[in-house]
Simulated assay, not measured.
Amino acid sequence: MSSKAYRVALSASGAALGAIAAYWALLAARQGHILFDTRKLPVVALSGDFSTYSHTVPGGMVRGYVYHPHGEAALQDLFVYFAGRGEDVRATAKALHWLPEGFGFAAVNYRGMADSEGHPSEIASVADAVQLANHLRKAFPHARLHVVGRSLGSGVAIQLVAQQKFSSLQLITPYDSMLEVAKKRFPLVPLSLLLRHQFNSLAHCIGVAAKTQVLLAERDDVVLPERSAKLIAAWPTPVSVRTIAGSDHHSIIGFEETWLLLVDFALTAVLAMPEAV
């Protein structure tokens, strides 16, 4: 190789390495917004069956909603829901007509997502979950609280239930750690060094004592089956596992069967442990 060709090759290699480094730096800087998918979505209007919730965070307000169509006095069981990536909980509320009388639903949008402000992160989402749960215990002291986490939100749900006592925990398409899930999407990125929001559910599940159910999609190319299987195998207590026929990672939350199984398991957990939590 001539000296000129060598210099050209060296320059090209340097430019490629620089581009890779710049890409890694962008991922590191924007990883919270990428992980939570904070792109703005169309506003979803809610009915009068919802009351609003909010608390102040750096950069603005976290906003959420509580569904109690038969009035607060009739609320016996309340799903405390933590959404998947890019999910506006107001859109998820369209499926709540499958909940029977006595059941309600409460959720917040993650920081920077939909109508919530602030900067998303693992630490922030868990802190907001704790604050929401504390509020619900005071606002609805006679309601039994059941935590539900979907996909990304399963990592939030597990950390919350590891800290507080709840009547049940249900996980929809959960994973062992976000680091392992992200490796599929970014195979050439040193994620173990760059990823700050690792949601290591495998480590946090050790502290979970609540009765637990896992709902899996029949087809899931986002959270691969081995990621869910590894978490289930490590679970510290017996866990019920069901698969929603015909569903995939994105559609599972819209299936009637999903909601009926959530309700059935919550009631079964209450019968096994009748005292309110």
Rank of each mutant, 00 (worst) to 15 (best):
R144T: 06
R39W: 08
T268A: 10
G155T: 02
A107Y: 06
H146M: 05
V148E: 06
L169C: 06
E72R: 14
V43L: 15
L171P: 09
P225R: 09
I172K: 02
A5M: 07
L194E: 09
G86H: 09
F103D: 01
H250Q: 13
S116V: 14
A217H: 03
A124I: 00
A15D: 02
I206Q: 15
G153H: 05
S116F: 11
D248I: 10
E275Y: 03
V80A: 03
N200Q: 08
L216I: 10
D88F: 02
Q198S: 12
W98H: 14
D220H: 14
M178K: 03
Y110Q: 04
F103R: 00
A217D: 03
T258D: 03
P120L: 03
I244L: 10
I244P: 10
A15F: 14
Q31R: 07
V147I: 15
P274N: 07
Y6V: 05
R227N: 13
V62S: 02
L215R: 08
E180A: 13
P274Q: 07
F255V: 00
L224A: 12
A25T: 15
M178P: 07
R144S: 11
H135P: 00
T56G: 03
S247D: 14
S167T: 01
G60P: 09
L169P: 06
R7G: 04
I20H: 10
A209P: 04
T38M: 06
A9G: 11
K165P: 00
A157K: 07
L145M: 13
M113C: 00
L231S: 01
A74L: 11
A143Y: 05
F103P: 01
Q198M: 07
A22P: 03
I253L: 10
T52F: 11
A91S: 11
E117W: 00
P225A: 05
F36T: 10
T258G: 05
L231Y: 03
D115C: 10
T243D: 04
I232N: 12
K138C: 00
F199R: 02
L195R: 08
S47R: 01
A182F: 03
W259M: 13
E226L: 12
S3N: 05
P120M: 02
D115Q: 14
A95G: 10
A106R: 09
V223G: 08
Y53I: 10
P190Q: 13
S251P: 04
L136E: 14
V147N: 02
T92H: 11
